[in-house]
């Protein structure tokens, strides 16, 4: 089971929604909070706080930020009030 992440005061906490089959990796939670201001920080924080997510993160993940799918641009900024949804890597169409 993942332990609660430590929060430094300077980074905003962002809610990240996970798809169903990943919830086993977060103790059943559909939404987790991480400290991040961009795409890369979200992914890194997820991998750190929820090690069971690592296999999927290694296979590749995209993020939907306020409804727009970002395939993998690490430095896409994220506002604290943005809707952030984890998606599998969107390739192969």
């Amino acid at each position: 089971m993942a332990s609660a992440p430590v929060t430094p005061p300077d980074k905003p906490r962002i809610k990240v929604r996970l798809w169903g089959s990943l919830r086993a990796a977060t103790g059943g939670k559909e939404e987790v909070e991480v400290e991040a201001t961009n795409f890369k920080q979200v992914i890194d924080a997820l991998a750190r706080d929820y090690p069971a997510l690592r296999p999927q993160i290694e296979r590749g993940v995209s993020l939907a930020i306020d409804g727009v799918i970002y395939k993998e641009s690490w430095f896409t900024p994220i506002n604290p009030d943005s809707e952030v949804v984890l998606m599998p890597l969107m390739v192969g169409g």
Partner: peptide, 8 residues
């Protein structure tokens, strides 16, 4: 959306 995000 059924796959997670809210549509713009």
């Amino acid at each position: 959306a059924s796959y997670g995000p809210t549509y713009p």
